[in-house]
Amino acid sequence: MSTDYQTGREGEFTYRGYTLDELQEMELDEVAELLPARKRRSITRGLSTEKQKLLEKVEGRGEEETANNPIRTHLRDMPVLPSFVGLTFAVYDGHEFERVEVAPEMLGHYLGEFVLTRTSVEHGQAGIGATRSSKFVPLK
């Protein structure tokens, strides 16, 4: 699996040949051209009003402010944009809000990819009404 980001000679982050500073100065349409097809299509077809409100919140906040008070959102399908780097989001996983600190390597992914919605199941012993064969629990 190839990655679209890499570190330059000085250890500087680049995404498809552009540094993070260059990406942050670009317009949304220019950044969309660099993203994978699914994310590019969702941006070019127009962001929903909820996603536009999230972008406005991001533009009005600084890194220090979001570290203490993260931006809460239910928008798991929002693509990670260069303006999100360094900010902290609280993304809803269906039960509670999980904190996500956006790193440069997250560009081109969705916010929801970094917050799992399912937990692993740890089964206990068989309960009342279980069949005789399922009541057997091996001794440890």
Rank of each mutant, 00 (worst) to 15 (best):
H109C: 08
G8F: 01
E22W: 13
V80E: 09
Y5K: 05
S134G: 03
L81D: 04
E113W: 06
R45K: 14
R38Q: 14
L20H: 03
H95S: 10
V115T: 04
Q125T: 14
R76F: 11
L111E: 03
M26E: 06
E105I: 14
L55D: 02
D21R: 14
G112Q: 06
H95W: 07
S120Q: 10
R45F: 05
S134A: 13
L81H: 03
G108L: 00
L54V: 05
L111V: 01
P70T: 14
I43K: 03
R72M: 13
S134P: 00
M78Y: 04
A126K: 07
K39H: 15
D77N: 11
R38E: 15
V91S: 07
L75W: 02
K51P: 00
A126M: 04
E105M: 01
L47H: 00
L81W: 00
Y92M: 05
L35F: 12
G108A: 00
H95F: 09
K135L: 10
P104Q: 07
N69R: 15
T131L: 12
H123I: 14
G8L: 04
K57R: 14
D93V: 06
E59V: 08
Y18S: 11
R41F: 13
S120T: 06
A37S: 14
L116W: 10
E12N: 09
E96W: 07
G112I: 05
L23W: 10
I71S: 12
A37M: 10
P79K: 00
L116G: 11
S48V: 03
E33M: 13
F89W: 00
P36Q: 05
L28T: 05
L55S: 08
R40L: 12
T19K: 10
S134I: 09
G46K: 03
E122S: 06
V80K: 07
Q52V: 09
M1V: 12
E65C: 00
L107M: 08
M26G: 03
D93W: 07
I43G: 03
L75T: 01
V137S: 15
K140Q: 13
E96C: 05
I71D: 11
L28H: 02
T66N: 05
R9A: 14
I71Q: 13
T117I: 10
L116D: 12
L55T: 03
Q125L: 15
Y18N: 12
L35Q: 00
F97G: 01
